[in-house]
């Protein structure tokens, strides 16, 4: 009795391995993203090893080394793995802080709202005389002052809107931490895909980019993707985002943005982020103000 049951379980195992190998298997599609699995061995970040510039011992002892994480660099659009690259854990392997991300997203939205321009005139700003319209007494009518009273037609507006600035502020160090937390969140879920260089397409027709997106599992079915390029690539942008001359684009599969145009909310919105390596490096460099702090010193070498 033992032999057949062993045989069946072996068969089961073989089938399961063959299922694992077939990438288009729907079950496997549910299980994990194929292309973007992180190659890194995830290392727990001990709290004591985080570089704190405000400990007084810092200039006497060099700061402890920050552990590094691995990322795979792919070619675009073939997505052949080219090489591995290292990133410090305090850039791409930060713990998820929903409160920091929340503050950054709210801050960006408020800055985007910016100045509201609605403006009305109060009675002192309305053009007109200060002459009393009619005598105070004896007319049998209501007492009235000048013609600009907010009660009268043509008068000023009481409690009307005036231009106001809707933007809020966020400390630079917190905002930078939010950028790196957002990238770390993507990285840890395997949704940060680093590509070496994005070349412009040959055509601005969207069939090509559509097939690329669907082929790699980046499209609508898989929660869309954000492509980040260093510079604007006219044909790629027209093909994916559409253009003003009526080209529809393939926005259902994702969006492509220039590096200078993205913010923290963009990084969190879609299913994954496909980013050029130099853009990622530049973002991490620009948003490390809380890491690059130096001890104030009068000794200049």
């Amino acid at each position: 009795m033992a032999a057949p049951s062993l045989w069946s379980s072996l068969q089961c195992l073989r089938k399961s391995t063959s299922a694992l190998l077939s990438a288009r298997d729907p079950v496997m599609q549910c299980l994990a993203p194929r292309l973007s699995r992180p190659m890194a061995t995830e290392v727990e970040l001990p709290q004591s090893q985080i570089y704190n510039p405000f400990t007084p011992m810092i200039s006497r002892r060099p700061p402890p080394p920050v552990p590094e994480v691995l990322a795979t660099v792919y070619s675009f659009p073939n997505m052949e793995p080219l090489r591995f690259t290292h990133y410090p854990a305090n850039q791409l392997h930060l713990p998820l802080r929903r409160d920091i991300l929340h503050r950054a997203v709210i801050y960006e939205a408020s800055v985007h709202r910016g100045m509201r321009t609605a403006n009305t005139k109060w009675r002192s700003e309305v053009h007109g005389s200060n002459r009393k319209i009619r005598p105070q007494k004896g007319t049998g009518k209501a007492r009235l002052g000048d013609r600009k009273s907010p009660m009268l037609r043509g008068g000023g507006v009481a409690f009307g809107p005036h231009p106001r600035d809707m933007s809020t502020k966020l400390p630079r160090k917190i905002y930078d931490l939010a950028w790196r937390t957002a990238l770390s969140y993507r990285y840890r879920r395997g949704e940060l895909i680093v590509v070496q260089k994005v070349e412009d397409l040959e055509t601005d027709n969207s069939w090509l980019i559509e097939s690329i997106m669907e082929q790699h599992g980046w499209g609508r079915k898989d929660g869309k993707s954000l492509l980040v390029t260093r510079r604007v690539m006219p044909k790629l942008f027209a093909a994916l985002n559409g253009s003003k001359d009526g080209q529809p684009g393939a926005l259902q599969h994702g969006i492509v943005k220039e590096e200078a145009d993205i913010d923290v909310k963009d990084l969190l919105e879609m299913g994954r982020v496909v980013i050029e390596k130099r853009s990622l490096d530049s973002i991490l460099r620009d948003h490390s103000s809380d890491l690059n702090m130096t001890v104030p010193s009068a000794v200049h070498t």
Binding site: R98, D99, L101, H102, V105, L268
Partner: peptide, 11 residues
């Protein structure tokens, strides 16, 4: 595929 944006809260 749901975005994390819906579950961001302040402390």
């Amino acid at each position: 595929s749901s975005s994390i944006l819906g579950s961001l809260t302040n402390v």
